[in-house]
Nucleic acid binder design. Sequence first.
DNA 1: AAAAAAC
Length: 615
Amino acid sequence: MPGFSDRDRGRDRGYGSGPPRFGGGGRGGGGGGKFGNPGDRLRKKHWNLDELSKFEKNFYQEHPDVNRRSPQEVTQYRSTKAVTVKGRDCPNPIMKFHEASFPTYVMDVINKAGWSEPTPIQAQGWPLALSGKDMVGIAQTGSGKTLSYLLPAIVHINHQPFLERGDGPICLVLAPTRELAQQVQQVAAEYGRASRLKSVCVYGGAPKGPQLRDLDRGVEICIATPGRLIDFLEAGKTNMRRCTYLVLDEADRMLDMGFEPQIRKIVDQIRPDRQTLMWSATWPKEVRQLAEDFLKDYVQINVGALQLSANHNILQIVDVCNDGEKEDKLLRLLEEIMSEKENKTIIFTETKRRCDEITRRMRRDGWPAMGIHGDKSQQERDWVLNEFKFGKAPILIATDVASRGLDVEDVKFVINFDYPNNSEDYIHRIGRTARSQKTGTAYTFFTPNNMRQASDLVAVLREANQAINPKLLQMADRGGHSRGGRGGSGFRDDRRDRYSSGGRRDFSSFRDRENDRGFDSGPKKVFGTNSQSGGYGASGFDKSGNGFGGYGSNGQSNYGTSQAGAFPTQNFQAPQFSANQGGIQNGMSHQQFPFTQQQAPQPMVPYSMPPQFPQ
DNA sequence: AAAAAAC
């Protein structure tokens, strides 16, 4: 493979026959000692960019097939895939995996995974990252983002001299949550294995010992949450002297969580001639500022994400109701979901306390549910997540600790028990389903307390061609300003204002007392084709706005009994649910709740109690 | 008013 042959060969003989050795010569044919003593480089006043990224700069010459793409072809690709590019000298996208010219040790893993073509962010991001330039990627999770930066990282590392004793990582990835960091590390381990790269996940809440051992042994890739890494850096347990490839994953999220000082502290220690890649789901001015400070002459790639945009493979259903109704509604909904064959479900709550309450309630009713939030020990969090991942317990109840990045295959349903504080979180939460070309369904309870998010949500639903609950539209009308008109670029700019402005509004006047009383109002063929809701466009809701909240006076399952065609979503087959044939009838009224232990539906999946964790 | 993250 042109351009990589030196390195490949270098690895195949001699160098590759064992793990990279401390004190060994340079990696591949680069000539030992070029960077022999990283300390020397640190002492230099001027940073020699040319030396470091010679490989990256040669990328174009080595891959004429990528460059030769005609401008028309590029334009067409970018427009059909809704990819926009901003910045100087952005290489053309690749359209097939082989065009990326990854070395065989990477291609083998790609081939084994059996994907058909690169995702848009990969198609554009790979050549860009491989060319050595700084970049910003604006893309949703689930878009193939992790591999977009990890594979070029692996190539980059393989073109650097071997680690020597005392060297820190060559590639650093910063992530907002521990779970995300662990996940990224798993991918890094999988793809780095073939070229014998070692990786470590540095995060809090877990014993330091193993992490320190890994660092001490020498790791090329370090994935970290900021706190523990700073801890280690300050204690001199690791260093950033060798770090030349920096990734900030979920940058917007990290800023939200107030990590900015920590991030700056870490990045200040990383040599300025590094390559920096920043990833974010949104592009508010805080993130722009961070990019200005940390990146040089960067190219920005957007994948249809500058405006609020959710994955179109998700069927989104919003139930406008009152807070008091939510719990019963949830149990009924769950009953239907659990009669499905594929039923992996995440339920999001606003608070940790609520998360615990719901978990307790569900378990009391016999559901195989488990909770996860930030007050639980890391040991328990890991355990719960694994049980969920491997299907031992199909119901996960979570706070926003799990809203982003979490990549569990086959999540078919997301339920927003509480609507999140901001609409990006809504998009991230529902994005836990319908991953990698699959489809999924998101149910959302929306109450008058969420009024100020109504217009955002409507915008999201519109963009995804979803049927919109007229009650929600009503709330959006009365709910005041919409962010939609601002063109999206400043999506979270007004965050602080919204949180601190004035006193709380009194929403009671908006309550629709007639319809919010219970389960009993109105005709119930919810998603039928009764489009007398004229004013509401293509919406399949009836006038009462009972999106999926009306429970079966006609004995029909109202959750998702969607006739094909009721949803104008393109390229999407609305899931067909059978009416529940189980012991609990759909037409039952809410007075019969709560379930007793005996009545409770049996879990679909054998479920064992979690081990006892220390409080 | 809440969530996450270092001890």
